[in-house]
Nucleic acid binder design. Structure first.
Lengths: 162, 162
DNA sequence: TTATGATTGATTATCACTGACCTAGCAAAT
DNA sequence: ATTTGCTAGGTCAGTGATAATCAATCATAA
């Protein structure tokens, strides 16, 4: 197995995004990118799915056929309401503890929350889930409770002035 | 059985964290670490769970599969205040939502927590209390749950200073 | 003795990557 | 207008590598 190919491609794409001055997107050809890294084209799809997802702050647009392309857009929420709504969408109405942890990791990467805030939220989720287990709440309901807790904490945080 | 293994691994990880100059995290492979100490890989998970929890000021990130890893982050903060025992005393083993709010206001005035952190804690308490009410928990027990939640969140924040 | 903490290993879940096959867009030939 | 063919990207299942989970067991202290 090629070690860290995904990470290499991710870094390459991030550097391209970083170079953009006015735009907040890049456009490329899947086949060409695959050739640069000497891998199979579907590897690119894997990188996009695992590293440039909406919860990580990106949107993907693409077209097939002649003059096809892949476009990577960085999601920029200009106002607090948009941030709040975006995060609420990602959480949905049910989320596991592990999915929540992953989301918090991404949010700290994007500097939407601090390390201390992430710590507090993880503790609150764990504490809340413990109580739910003590009360014999089934797993599906627990995931809904997680979503409520997480959404309330994060959306409020996005809406206040920091 | 050698009950110092966990302590040994903990010391080793702490020394690695201490050696870090610029970063406040270390990254390693579970399998390799287990080999160093001649133990089963799941022993590492036990060490992380029992010694590097969010309540103790650490966050864990990990990935499975090829190029998998475990990352340990030490969350640091600007206010090197301690007072966790003092705060734990104030909270006691039972506290009402309103008493909790007053304590949080006091802590923010003293700049031991930020406004955002105070918001997060208040929301966590409210959410947790709502769930408890839904489960027909009596008021006395609810106050104990409040105290657990508040203590876990606050003491972890106060403990970290590095 | 009992309760708690430490350790193990079997099982399960997830990740990185590949390649065969599928589908969409487009335009030239009919 | 329809068919055909080329060129792109999409999907999915499989493989090997790695970490997480969980129940059982052992050790230690109260």
């Amino acid at each position: 197995m090629n070690n860290n190919l995904t990470r290499e491609i991710e870094k390459y794409l991030l550097s391209l995004l970083d170079e953009q001055e006015d735009e907040d997107f890049i456009q490329l050809r899947r086949k060409e990118l695959a050739e640069i890294f000497g891998c199979v084209p579907s590897q690119i799809n894997y990188v996009l799915r695992s590293r440039f997802s909406p919860e990580q702050g990106y949107l993907i647009e693409s077209r097939r056929g002649g003059s096809g392309y892949i476009k990577i857009l960085k999601i920029t929420c200009s106002n607090p309401e948009q941030k709040s709504e975006h995060i609420s969408d990602i959480i949905g109405d049910s989320i596991s503890i592990n999915e929540a942890k992953r989301l918090l990791e991404y949010l700290q990467d994007r500097e939407l929350i601090t390390g201390r805030e992430r710590l507090l939220i993880e503790i609150a989720l764990k504490e809340s889930d413990n109580q739910a287990q003590i009360n014999d709440i089934d797993i599906a309901t627990r995931k809904e409770i997680n979503a409520d807790m997480l959404r309330h904490m994060l959306t409020s945080l996005m809406l206040i002035e920091s």
